[in-house]
Amino acid sequence: MESVKRLSRRFLVALALAAGGWLTVTADQQLTLPLKADSVRFGVIGDNGTGEVPQYEVGQQLATFHERFPFTFVLMMGDNLYGPQRPQDFVKKFETPYQLLLEAKVDFYASLGNHDDPNQRFYAPFNMAGKRYYSFKKGNVRFFALDSNYMDPAQLAWLEPELKNSGSDWKIAYFHHPLYSSGMHGSQVDLRVVLEPLFLKYGVDVVFSGHEHFYQRIKPQKGINYFVTGAAGELRRGDIRPSPLTAAGYDADRSFMLVEVAGKELSFQAISRTGKTVDHGTILLREAARTTTTAGAPGAAPPLPH
């Protein structure tokens, strides 16, 4: 029965990709990440759960890159399932588009977006352990998945000791709403008021968010590197407004990120639906260096005008 289900899902993936005229592997699909031994490797997707062809194409692209960059888990920035959240929606908007990764035993760690029913926290493949917010450790990195939809005093009271006692070199927070962004929704200042002081006090290095349907790398703010990556399903084309916040941006197509942490270096690569690298670079651990070094890639989106 299970094999029949798997086959039918494969058929659905193939059908969806064929309907979208999906591309075969191209020379665009270059890997810029260093692939160092014993590194922590993961993907980042946001605003993905549409169940439509572009989401499937991004899923396929993730699977293709996984063959050359065997990441072991994926962070989800929320809006995991848009619209109805019936049992069939979990299949159509999550299990089928990422079937190849799930079969390869890639784990997904979800955070909740404003389109998500908080009861998704009980869905085992989202690895939330029944909690709206949680943390986990991989190698020398501690990840903090927050619920930015409902940042109540209880969550803040939980976060502070978690950050303080994390016992990791790297601290990476992720949640749906960006503290800094140049899109339609804009920076979530209200959230920034309560989170940023904790991030600064306890040395959070990197923050990933979604909500805005594009990719944007923010210039480091008070030493923290922020990424907006909310276009793994939805897209708001041309929505990155000129802003002094932007270090790099891409809003012409869907996108996702691959990340590798090795020692005191974090390397990132932002990739489009068609496999084109739209941004990449390396960040040093805050304690190791106060500066960020980033190299532009051929074909990468240049920083937008300020």
């Binding site: 619209g83 109805p84 959240q85 404003n114 389109h115 998500d116 029913d117 908080p118 930015s148 939809n149 409902y150 940042m151 109540d152 005093p153 209880a154 803040l156 709403h177 209200d190 959230l191 008021v193 309560v194 989170l195």
Partner: peptide, 25 residues
Amino acid sequence: PGEWPLATFPATLLAKLPELPDGLE
């Protein structure tokens, strides 16, 4: 209704209202 998102509640406003027990928001 499932067709509507759950609007994000402003964190600073939340801090001004009585805290609720787990399971209520």
